[in-house]
Amino acid sequence: METLGTNLPYLLRGARVTVLLFAASLALGTVVGVGAGLLSAARHPVPRGIVAVYVFLTRGIPLLVHLFLVYYLLPVIGLDLEPYVGATIVLALYIGAFISEVTRGAIGSVSRGQLDAALSLGMTRGRAMRKIVLRQAVRYFLPPYIGNAVMLVKLTSVVSVINIWELTLAGREVVERTLAPFQIFAGVALIYFAICYGLSRLGRAMEQRTEFGH
């Protein structure tokens, strides 16, 4: 137990990097994902098709392979990205595909009649979508979105495989030094658990506040 105790500060520094990486990629990924999800509800087939291809390619390939592709591809096309920036972008684009599907599902969950009613009252399609459909879609959007956010926290651990430093890699370093894998990895697991569980609770609190019918 003391091994874990003495190395805790180091691990917590790793945790801090994990959280920053998570926050940045979630922010970017949400913008990309919601944008793509909205595009997939467009009336024109071209934007819908582009999003479908994006989702297909992204979700059909493991995150690690995406990371390797970017890692090996960048020097070839002459781009030099700072590792954390590159990792954030890849994570964001990866989670964006999932969020896009969540958005699409949420919009689809709002009954067609709502849009019909809004249109029949004389609202333009854009206005009807915004004030009536999207406002109700939020209720269906939050739970799976939070689920994907938790998934993202766990996905940040994958960047350790390409030697980007965060909690998992910090853990591996400590294990190599101290040769106490059981303690250390248990400790790392608990830190991840705390972050993920906390995120879920936060999410549930937000869900409560978007209930309507006060």
């Binding site: 938790v150 651990s157 040769l179 894998p181 059981f182 697991a189 991840y192 658990f193």
Partner: peptide, 23 residues
């Protein structure tokens, strides 16, 4: 269920591989 859903599979893998080896 709660523990496994809130920890990365990579950690579980390292824990099993390196952790059990020590034990």
């Amino acid at each position: 269920v709660e523990f496994l859903r809130n920890t990365p599979v990579l950690i579980q893998m390292f824990g099993l591989y390196f952790g059990l080896a020590v034990l």
